[in-house]
Computed example of a mutant assay.
Amino acid sequence: MRFNRMLLSAALVVVALVVQVCVLARLQLPGAVPDLMLLTVLGLALVYGHVGGCLVGFGAGLLTDLAPPADHAAGRYALVLCVIGYLAGLAKPEKGQPRTALGPMLVVVAAAIGTTLLYASVGALVGDTAARHVGLVSLLFTAAVYDLLLAPFVVPGVMALARRAENDPLAETNSSGGSGRTTTDVSAGWLSSGTGLRLGGRRTVLRTKAVKVRAARAGRIKGVKRL
Rank of each mutant, 00 (worst) to 15 (best):
G200W: 11
L191I: 11
L170Q: 09
L170M: 13
S187C: 05
T204H: 03
A151Y: 09
A165M: 11
A160G: 01
A165S: 14
P169R: 05
T204S: 13
G201K: 11
D185S: 05
L199N: 15
T182R: 01
V205M: 10
V155M: 09
R164T: 12
D185R: 04
E172Q: 09
T173S: 00
R164H: 14
G177S: 09
L197Q: 07
T173R: 08
L199T: 15
R207H: 07
S192R: 10
R164N: 08
A171V: 12
A171F: 00
S192E: 12
N174W: 14
V154F: 04
T183D: 09
L161Q: 01
F153T: 04
F141N: 01
T173K: 02
M159V: 06
V158Q: 04
S175M: 09
E166H: 07
F153P: 01
N174R: 12
N174L: 11
R163K: 10
P152W: 02
L149T: 09
L150K: 11
A165I: 08
V154K: 02
P152Y: 05
F141H: 06
L206P: 00
Y146D: 11
G194Q: 00
R163V: 06
D168H: 12
G178W: 01
W190G: 03
T195L: 15
E172T: 06
G180M: 01
G178Y: 01
G200I: 11
S179A: 15
L148Y: 03
L191G: 06
L206S: 11
A151D: 15
A171N: 01
L148V: 13
T208M: 10
L148H: 03
L199I: 08
M159G: 08
T195H: 15
R198C: 02
V205T: 10
V158E: 05
D147E: 03
T184P: 00
T173N: 00
R202Y: 07
V186A: 05
V158C: 06
L161Y: 01
L197M: 04
R163N: 09
P156K: 02
L206R: 13
R203F: 04
S193W: 07
V145F: 14
G201V: 13
R207G: 00
P156I: 02
G157M: 02
L161I: 00
L148D: 00
E166S: 05
L150C: 14
T173V: 00
D147Q: 06
G201H: 14
T195W: 09
G189K: 08
T183G: 12
M159W: 08
R181F: 05
